[in-house]
Nucleic acid binder design. Structure first.
Length: 384
DNA sequence: TCTGGGGTCCTAGGACCC
DNA sequence: TCTGGGGTCCTAGGACCC
């Protein structure tokens, strides 16, 4: 999908059409999540601090994200995908690979499939989408990038090498800033430069596994099949605070609220986490994680909070905290037999269920621990 | 007005087991 | 007669993607 968050906002507020718009955080630490093509002409990019985006585009309209709405629209888009083929591999909320090799009887060629998908999305959802067509996932992905916005690009097998080799190396999937710098030291600028190097010299600076992988991609070789809907491997909640949390009490209060949000998401998915991870970022941006794998999977807010609190004790409690997060890894089906607790924890399970129901219906901020409410009231100057 | 939030995958060392 | 080989799991950090 093209500028997905922005286009969803335009569906509900047509006055945003044709203007430079960014969806993202508007606070002092906000960043751009999605920029309209009008905004991109001013240099506005996703992941850019909102303050810098506003400097380069003073007329920029900044809209706060409504992730629930994006999820709903995403489901409609994916329903369109699945009406063409069950072989749909979601890559994110707004992007998927479709294996359409089985549709040769119904369509004259892949170009007709791509056109039909774009038309159906426009008709049923009302949003622009771009399609890339190729013989494998990696080239199809790059083809869709070059098709944006609101276009279609077919790269036949015979044109694959010419298409790939002209691209800058950082177009390759998996080449970010660190790998780009390492490749630049080898004199590599384009995908063609990389493809011309012997594997030994690439693996000397990137390691054997990465070198083999990147060289294969540079030659257009990507054997990975389209694998429909894989299970989530982790679920996490994190938050960057407008002002650093400068006391252990404030950090713990925030952790309690996050533990409840995490518990709610786990329970709604019917999952429990074997491993709990706490993430802390300090004011100088250094980030640490602490994790612990318990003997029982957890999905109750109280248990998750207690595990997180113990992990917090292994971090620096003095330095102000810019970001705090908590996550669950090693997810298992919550329906599988779990040892019944004898210490009254099932009471907390029932409370977490009730909290989860209420936050489902009325939003995450509708219910929370009294300790957090106390902190909020104090910050707002409300008498106890 | 410096740097979000939610993920995946990989690496590397250490514990532990046979 | 000082220290094999293979495997799995856990933990921490980092690169990368949208």
């Amino acid at each position: 999908m093209d500028a997905f968050f922005v286009e969803v906002e335009r569906l509900s507020d047509p006055s945003l059409v044709g203007k430079p718009v960014a969806v993202g955080g508007s606070g002092p630490r906000g960043v751009v999540a999605s920029a309209s093509y009008e905004a991109r002409r001013y240099g506005v990019r996703s992941a850019q601090p909102t303050a810098i985006a506003l400097r380069s585009c003073p007329s920029l309209i900044v809209v706060s994200p409504s992730h629930g709405r994006y999820g709903q629209v995403s489901e409609k888009v994916f329903a369109v995908f699945r009406s063409f083929t069950p072989l749909v591999e979601g890559l994110s909320v707004d992007e998927a690979f479709l294996d359409v090799s089985g549709l040769t009887r119904h369509f004259e060629g892949p170009g007709h499939v791509g056109a039909a998908i774009r038309e159906t999305i426009a008709a049923r959802v009302g949003l622009p989408a771009s399609v890339g067509i190729a013989a494998n996932k990696f080239v199809a992905k790059l083809a869709s990038e070059s098709a944006k916005p609101n276009g279609m690009r077919h790269v036949p097998v015979g044109e694959q090498t010419a298409f790939l080799h002209a691209l800058s190396v950082d177009a390759l999937w998996g080449v970010g800033p660190a790998t780009l710098a390492a490749l630049a030291r080898l004199g590599v600028e384009t995908v063609g430069d990389l493809a011309a190097l012997p594997e030994s010299s690439v693996s000397a600076s990137l390691g054997e596994a990465s070198a083999r992988h990147l060289l294969a991609l540079a030659n257009g070789d990507d054997p990975r099949p389209v694998v429909p809907d894989s299970e989530a491997k982790s679920i996490s909640v994190e938050e960057t605070f407008p002002d650093d949390l400068d006391s252990p009490e404030r950090v713990e209060a925030a952790l309690l609220a996050q533990a409840q949000r995490l518990a709610g998401r786990l329970r709604r998915s019917g999952l429990a986490a074997r491993t709990i991870v706490v993430k802390v970022r300090y004011e100088d941006f250094t980030t640490v994680t602490r994790s612990h794998t318990g003997d029982r999977p957890k999905d109750a807010a109280r248990e998750i909070f207690e595990a997180g609190r113990r992990l917090l004790e292994e971090t620096d409690r003095v330095r102000p905290v810019r970001l705090l997060g908590i996550g669950g890894h090693g997810l298992v089906d919550a329906g599988m037999p779990r040892q019944l607790s004898i210490d009254g924890n099932d009471r907390w399970d029932r409370i977490a269920d009730a909290v989860s129901d209420i936050s489902d219906r009325f939003g995450d901020s509708s219910i929370g621990p009294a300790r957090l409410a106390d902190t909020r009231n104090r910050e707002e100057g409300i008498d106890q």
